[in-house]
Protein backbone atom coordinates (compact mmCIF):
# COMPACT_ATOMS: atom_id res chain seq x y z
CA UNK A 1 0.00 0.00 0.00
CA UNK A 2 1.28 3.43 -0.85
CA UNK A 3 1.52 6.31 1.55
CA UNK A 4 -1.20 8.95 1.50
CA UNK A 5 -0.40 11.29 4.37
CA UNK A 6 3.02 11.80 5.84
CA UNK A 7 3.59 13.99 8.87
CA UNK A 8 7.10 14.63 10.19
CA UNK A 9 8.39 16.54 13.21
CA UNK A 10 5.23 18.54 13.37
CA UNK A 11 4.80 21.21 16.02
CA UNK A 12 1.83 23.52 16.32
CA UNK A 13 1.90 26.44 18.71
CA UNK A 14 -1.06 28.81 18.97
CA UNK A 15 -0.12 32.32 20.03
CA UNK A 16 -2.87 34.27 21.71
CA UNK A 17 -2.24 38.02 21.73
CA UNK A 18 -5.20 38.59 23.96
CA UNK A 19 -4.02 36.26 26.74
CA UNK A 20 -0.36 37.02 26.05
CA UNK A 21 0.49 33.34 26.13
CA UNK A 22 1.05 30.55 23.69
CA UNK A 23 -0.40 27.06 23.71
CA UNK A 24 1.53 24.13 22.33
CA UNK A 25 -1.30 22.20 20.75
CA UNK A 26 0.83 19.55 19.04
CA UNK A 27 4.42 18.49 19.70
CA UNK A 28 6.75 16.25 17.70
CA UNK A 29 4.07 14.49 15.72
CA UNK A 30 5.28 11.83 13.33
CA UNK A 31 2.55 9.93 11.57
CA UNK A 32 2.17 8.10 8.32
CA UNK A 33 -1.19 7.09 6.89
CA UNK A 34 -1.48 4.57 4.07
CA UNK A 35 -3.79 4.83 1.10
CA UNK A 36 -7.16 3.34 1.93
CA UNK A 37 -6.42 3.20 5.61
CA UNK A 38 -8.99 4.05 8.27
CA UNK A 39 -7.24 5.89 11.08
CA UNK A 40 -8.88 7.11 14.25
CA UNK A 41 -7.43 9.98 16.26
CA UNK A 42 -8.36 9.38 19.85
CA UNK A 43 -7.65 11.57 22.84
CA UNK A 44 -9.10 13.70 25.61
CA UNK A 45 -10.78 17.01 24.88
CA UNK A 46 -8.31 19.73 24.00
CA UNK A 47 -5.47 17.39 23.04
CA UNK A 48 -5.24 18.76 19.52
CA UNK A 49 -7.31 16.37 17.43
CA UNK A 50 -9.11 19.14 15.53
CA UNK A 51 -5.83 21.00 15.15
CA UNK A 52 -4.18 17.96 13.55
CA UNK A 53 -7.11 17.49 11.20
CA UNK A 54 -7.05 21.19 10.26
CA UNK A 55 -3.35 20.91 9.46
CA UNK A 56 -3.97 17.99 7.10
CA UNK A 57 -6.90 19.88 5.58
CA UNK A 58 -4.64 22.88 5.01
CA UNK A 59 -6.63 25.40 7.04
CA UNK A 60 -3.63 25.91 9.32
CA UNK A 61 0.11 25.94 8.69
CA UNK A 62 2.35 24.16 11.20
CA UNK A 63 4.73 26.15 13.36
CA UNK A 64 7.42 23.70 12.28
CA UNK A 65 7.58 20.35 10.54
CA UNK A 66 5.73 19.20 7.47
CA UNK A 67 2.51 17.65 6.27
CA UNK A 68 2.69 15.83 2.96
CA UNK A 69 -0.33 14.55 1.08
CA UNK A 70 0.47 12.34 -1.90
CA UNK A 71 4.06 13.43 -1.47
CA UNK A 72 3.44 17.17 -1.80
CA UNK A 73 3.41 19.66 1.08
CA UNK A 74 -0.02 20.90 2.07
CA UNK A 75 -0.30 24.65 1.56
CA UNK A 76 -4.04 25.24 1.26
CA UNK A 77 -7.36 23.42 1.49
CA UNK A 78 -8.39 21.56 -1.63
CA UNK A 79 -11.11 19.28 -3.00
CA UNK A 80 -8.89 16.21 -2.64
CA UNK A 81 -9.43 16.43 1.13
CA UNK A 82 -13.08 16.39 2.14
CA UNK A 83 -13.85 17.60 5.65
CA UNK A 84 -16.74 16.83 7.97
CA UNK A 85 -16.58 19.55 10.58
CA UNK A 86 -17.15 19.12 14.30
CA UNK A 87 -19.67 21.97 14.14
CA UNK A 88 -21.24 20.61 10.90
CA UNK A 89 -20.35 23.58 8.67
CA UNK A 90 -23.29 23.03 6.34
CA UNK A 91 -24.81 26.10 4.71
CA UNK A 92 -28.04 27.23 6.40
CA UNK A 93 -29.14 29.11 3.25
CA UNK A 94 -29.16 25.94 1.15
CA UNK A 95 -31.55 23.02 1.43
CA UNK A 96 -30.24 19.50 2.01
CA UNK A 97 -30.08 18.87 -1.76
CA UNK A 98 -28.45 22.22 -2.47
CA UNK A 99 -25.83 21.56 0.20
CA UNK A 100 -25.00 18.17 -1.25
CA UNK A 101 -24.92 19.42 -4.84
CA UNK A 102 -22.93 22.57 -4.06
CA UNK A 103 -19.45 21.30 -4.92
CA UNK A 104 -20.45 19.63 -8.21
CA UNK A 105 -22.66 22.62 -9.15
CA UNK A 106 -19.78 25.06 -8.69
CA UNK A 107 -17.65 22.84 -10.88
CA UNK A 108 -20.28 23.13 -13.59
CA UNK A 109 -22.06 19.79 -13.30
CA UNK A 110 -25.28 19.64 -15.32
CA UNK A 111 -28.71 19.73 -13.64
CA UNK A 112 -29.07 16.03 -14.42
CA UNK A 113 -25.75 15.09 -12.87
CA UNK A 114 -26.56 17.15 -9.81
CA UNK A 115 -29.90 15.41 -9.42
CA UNK A 116 -28.27 12.01 -9.71
CA UNK A 117 -25.62 12.91 -7.17
CA UNK A 118 -28.21 14.24 -4.74
CA UNK A 119 -30.42 11.19 -5.08
CA UNK A 120 -27.49 8.84 -4.58
CA UNK A 121 -26.03 10.51 -1.50
CA UNK A 122 -29.33 11.39 0.13
CA UNK A 123 -30.14 7.71 -0.09
CA UNK A 124 -26.72 6.74 1.22
CA UNK A 125 -27.10 8.73 4.43
CA UNK A 126 -30.81 7.94 4.79
CA UNK A 127 -32.19 11.42 4.38
CA UNK A 128 -34.77 10.58 1.72
CA UNK A 129 -37.79 12.82 2.20
CA UNK A 130 -35.72 15.65 3.65
CA UNK A 131 -34.17 16.90 0.39
CA UNK A 132 -35.99 20.22 0.55
CA UNK A 133 -35.49 20.88 4.23
CA UNK A 134 -33.19 23.62 5.41
CA UNK A 135 -30.49 22.73 7.96
CA UNK A 136 -32.37 24.73 10.59
CA UNK A 137 -35.18 22.20 10.25
CA UNK A 138 -32.95 19.19 10.96
CA UNK A 139 -31.68 17.52 14.13
CA UNK A 140 -27.99 17.58 15.02
CA UNK A 141 -27.47 14.03 13.81
CA UNK A 142 -29.20 14.76 10.51
CA UNK A 143 -26.99 17.81 9.97
CA UNK A 144 -23.95 15.63 10.49
CA UNK A 145 -25.25 13.22 7.86
CA UNK A 146 -25.78 16.09 5.42
CA UNK A 147 -22.23 17.15 6.11
CA UNK A 148 -20.95 13.64 5.39
CA UNK A 149 -23.03 13.42 2.20
CA UNK A 150 -21.78 16.82 1.02
CA UNK A 151 -18.17 15.73 1.46
CA UNK A 152 -18.67 12.38 -0.25
CA UNK A 153 -20.60 13.93 -3.14
CA UNK A 154 -17.57 16.03 -3.98
CA UNK A 155 -15.50 12.89 -4.54
CA UNK A 156 -12.53 13.56 -2.27
CA UNK A 157 -9.44 11.38 -2.14
CA UNK A 158 -9.19 11.62 1.64
CA UNK A 159 -12.01 12.02 4.11
CA UNK A 160 -11.26 14.00 7.26
CA UNK A 161 -14.00 13.65 9.86
CA UNK A 162 -14.10 15.54 13.14
CA UNK A 163 -16.33 13.72 15.61
CA UNK A 164 -19.02 13.30 12.98
CA UNK A 165 -21.22 11.24 15.29
CA UNK A 166 -20.76 13.41 18.35
CA UNK A 167 -24.36 14.63 18.31
CA UNK A 168 -25.93 11.19 18.10
CA UNK A 169 -27.45 8.95 20.74
CA UNK A 170 -25.71 5.61 21.37
CA UNK A 171 -28.08 3.54 19.21
CA UNK A 172 -28.08 5.82 16.15
CA UNK A 173 -24.37 6.22 16.57
CA UNK A 174 -23.75 2.49 16.22
CA UNK A 175 -25.99 2.33 13.18
CA UNK A 176 -24.14 5.26 11.60
CA UNK A 177 -20.79 3.60 12.31
CA UNK A 178 -21.98 0.54 10.42
CA UNK A 179 -23.24 2.75 7.59
CA UNK A 180 -19.95 4.60 7.41
CA UNK A 181 -18.03 1.33 7.15
CA UNK A 182 -20.43 0.16 4.45
CA UNK A 183 -19.77 3.36 2.49
CA UNK A 184 -16.03 3.12 3.14
CA UNK A 185 -15.90 -0.51 1.93
CA UNK A 186 -17.27 0.65 -1.45
CA UNK A 187 -14.11 2.45 -2.57
CA UNK A 188 -11.78 2.40 0.47
CA UNK A 189 -11.07 6.11 0.68
CA UNK A 190 -8.38 7.09 3.14
CA UNK A 191 -10.19 8.14 6.32
CA UNK A 192 -8.98 10.16 9.26
CA UNK A 193 -11.65 10.03 11.90
CA UNK A 194 -11.52 12.04 15.12
CA UNK A 195 -13.32 10.70 18.16
CA UNK A 196 -13.07 10.59 21.90
CA UNK A 197 -15.04 7.38 22.14
CA UNK A 198 -12.83 4.33 22.63
CA UNK A 199 -15.59 1.96 21.54
CA UNK A 200 -16.03 3.91 18.31
CA UNK A 201 -12.32 3.87 17.55
CA UNK A 202 -12.00 0.13 18.17
CA UNK A 203 -15.03 -0.54 16.05
CA UNK A 204 -13.96 1.57 13.07
CA UNK A 205 -10.20 1.87 12.81
CA UNK A 206 -7.39 -0.03 11.15
CA UNK A 207 -5.14 1.92 13.48
CA UNK A 208 -5.89 4.04 16.52
CA UNK A 209 -3.60 6.98 17.15
CA UNK A 210 -3.79 7.86 20.84
CA UNK A 211 -2.91 11.45 21.60
CA UNK A 212 -1.87 12.83 24.95
CA UNK A 213 -2.94 16.26 26.11
CA UNK A 214 -0.94 19.45 26.89
CA UNK A 215 1.01 19.21 24.74
CA UNK A 216 -0.59 16.90 22.21
CA UNK A 217 1.81 14.08 21.36
CA UNK A 218 1.36 10.68 19.79
CA UNK A 219 1.22 8.55 22.89
CA UNK A 220 0.62 5.19 21.31
CA UNK A 221 -0.55 3.65 18.06
CA UNK A 222 -2.76 0.58 18.34
CA UNK A 223 -3.32 -1.74 15.38
CA UNK A 224 -6.79 -3.24 15.25
CA UNK A 225 -6.49 -6.52 13.44
CA UNK A 226 -10.11 -7.62 13.61
CA UNK A 227 -12.35 -8.65 10.73
CA UNK A 228 -15.07 -6.16 9.84
CA UNK A 229 -17.92 -5.90 10.65
CA UNK A 230 -16.67 -6.32 14.17
CA UNK A 231 -18.57 -8.03 16.90
CA UNK A 232 -18.90 -5.50 19.69
CA UNK A 233 -19.34 -8.27 22.25
CA UNK A 234 -16.42 -10.48 21.27
CA UNK A 235 -13.51 -11.16 23.61
CA UNK A 236 -10.90 -9.69 21.23
CA UNK A 237 -12.92 -6.50 20.86
CA UNK A 238 -13.13 -6.15 24.62
CA UNK A 239 -9.41 -6.93 25.00
CA UNK A 240 -8.50 -4.09 22.66
CA UNK A 241 -10.98 -1.77 24.30
CA UNK A 242 -9.31 -2.49 27.67
CA UNK A 243 -5.86 -1.88 26.28
CA UNK A 244 -6.78 1.47 24.75
CA UNK A 245 -8.73 2.44 27.83
CA UNK A 246 -5.78 1.81 30.15
CA UNK A 247 -3.35 3.70 27.90
CA UNK A 248 -5.72 6.64 27.73
CA UNK A 249 -6.35 6.68 31.48
CA UNK A 250 -2.67 6.65 32.31
CA UNK A 251 -2.27 9.48 29.86
CA UNK A 252 -5.07 11.53 31.29
CA UNK A 253 -3.95 11.20 34.88
CA UNK A 254 -0.40 12.07 33.82
CA UNK A 255 -1.46 15.20 32.01
CA UNK A 256 -3.60 16.15 34.98
CA UNK A 257 -0.62 15.84 37.34
CA UNK A 258 1.54 17.91 35.00
CA UNK A 259 -1.21 20.46 34.81
CA UNK A 260 -1.47 20.69 38.58
CA UNK A 261 2.30 21.00 38.99
CA UNK A 262 2.44 23.84 36.49
Amino acid sequence: MSEKVHITDLNMIYVSDRLERSVTALEDIDLSIATGEFVCLLGPSGCGKTTLLNLIAGFLQPTSGSVLVNGTPVSAPGPDRGVVFQEYGIFPWFTVSQNIAFGPRMRGASKREQEDIVRHYVDLVHLTGFEHHYPGELSGGMKQRVSIARSLANGPDILLMDEPFGALDAMTRETMQEELLRIWELDKKTCVFVTHSIAEAVYLADRIVILSAHPGRVKDIVEVDLERLRDRSSGEYFELYRHVDVTLRVEMSKSREEYEEA
Partner: peptide, 26 residues
Protein backbone atom coordinates in the same frame (compact mmCIF):
# COMPACT_ATOMS: atom_id res chain seq x y z
CA UNK B 1 -16.29 27.23 8.94
CA UNK B 2 -18.49 28.05 5.91
CA UNK B 3 -15.56 29.54 4.01
CA UNK B 4 -13.42 26.55 4.95
CA UNK B 5 -16.14 24.14 3.89
CA UNK B 6 -16.38 25.84 0.49
CA UNK B 7 -12.60 25.69 0.08
CA UNK B 8 -12.58 21.93 0.69
CA UNK B 9 -15.27 21.60 -1.97
CA UNK B 10 -12.91 23.20 -4.47
CA UNK B 11 -14.99 26.35 -4.84
CA UNK B 12 -13.20 29.39 -6.34
CA UNK B 13 -12.69 32.66 -4.45
CA UNK B 14 -15.18 34.44 -6.67
CA UNK B 15 -17.78 31.72 -6.14
CA UNK B 16 -17.16 31.88 -2.41
CA UNK B 17 -17.90 35.60 -2.50
CA UNK B 18 -21.23 35.16 -4.28
CA UNK B 19 -22.45 31.86 -2.89
CA UNK B 20 -21.09 31.93 0.64
CA UNK B 21 -20.23 35.45 1.82
CA UNK B 22 -23.14 37.23 0.13
CA UNK B 23 -25.61 34.49 0.97
CA UNK B 24 -24.49 34.42 4.56
CA UNK B 25 -24.83 38.20 4.96
CA UNK B 26 -28.10 38.52 3.03
Amino acid sequence: VHIWAALTLGVSRQQIFWHVIMRSAL
